[in-house]
Computed example of a mutant assay.
Amino acid sequence: MVIKNVIPPVLAAALAALVFSGSAMSDEHEVEKQADQALVILTNGSLQTQGMAMILSNAMQQQGTRVHILLCDASGDLAVEGYESAEAINTPPSNPAGRVKPEAILSMLQEKGANVDVCAIYLPNSEYDKEDLLDGVGVATPEAIAQMMTDPAIPVYSF
C-alpha cells in the first residue's frame, strides 16, 4: 500500500519533467527557426544610429541569422560607390575594432552574405542611378519587402 502511494507521484513527476523538457525543446526549435532570417530597415541619417544598426546586424549574422538590410532615405547613401561618412564611430568596448564607419561594416556584412537593397524610391529621389550602387546592392521591390515584413517567421528591425 505504501509503494502504491509513493510510485504514482514519482512517475507523475517524471512524466511532467519529460513533457516539460519536450515542450521546451519545441519552443527553442521554434525560436531558432524564427531567428533564421531578419530584416533590418535603416532610414536614419544619424551616424550613431547607422553604426548601431550595422553593429547589431553583424552580431545577428555572427549568431547564424541571415540578414537582409533595406536602406532608405539618407541611409541609402551607405550603398553608393565611393560614399564616405563624415567621421568614424567608436565601437562598443567589447568590440576590438575601435573606430569604424557604418559603410565599412555594411561592406563586411555583404561580404559575409547579407542581402543589401536600397528602397524602391531611393534612386528616383536622389542624384544616383543603379550603376552608382556598390556591387551586389539591389533595388528592393515593395512586394518583396512587404512579403518579408508580413512573414511571422522574419523579425523586422527598424532604425
Rank of each mutant, 00 (worst) to 15 (best):
A120F: 04
P152T: 10
Q34C: 09
I69D: 06
A79G: 12
L106V: 03
T91I: 04
A38R: 10
H29S: 07
S26T: 14
I7W: 02
G136C: 05
D151T: 14
A13I: 14
P92Y: 11
G82A: 01
A17K: 01
A14R: 09
T43K: 09
D151N: 15
A17V: 11
R66G: 08
V100T: 14
G136D: 11
E103F: 05
N95L: 02
P155R: 14
M1K: 09
A12V: 10
C119L: 01
V40I: 15
L106N: 05
M108D: 15
P9L: 07
S26C: 01
V10D: 02
E131A: 15
N125F: 07
L56C: 07
D77L: 03
A24K: 14
P96T: 14
V10Y: 05
T49F: 00
P124F: 08
M1F: 07
A79E: 01
P124Q: 09
K130V: 09
L18H: 07
L18K: 08
G138C: 08
F159A: 07
F159M: 03
A35F: 06
P124N: 09
G51M: 01
E131N: 11
I7F: 02
N90T: 13
D36G: 12
I121N: 13
L70K: 09
Q110Y: 07
V156I: 12
M60C: 00
T65D: 10
N5C: 01
L109Q: 07
V116I: 13
N95D: 15
V67G: 15
P142C: 00
V40P: 13
Q110G: 03
Q37V: 03
A24V: 12
R99P: 03
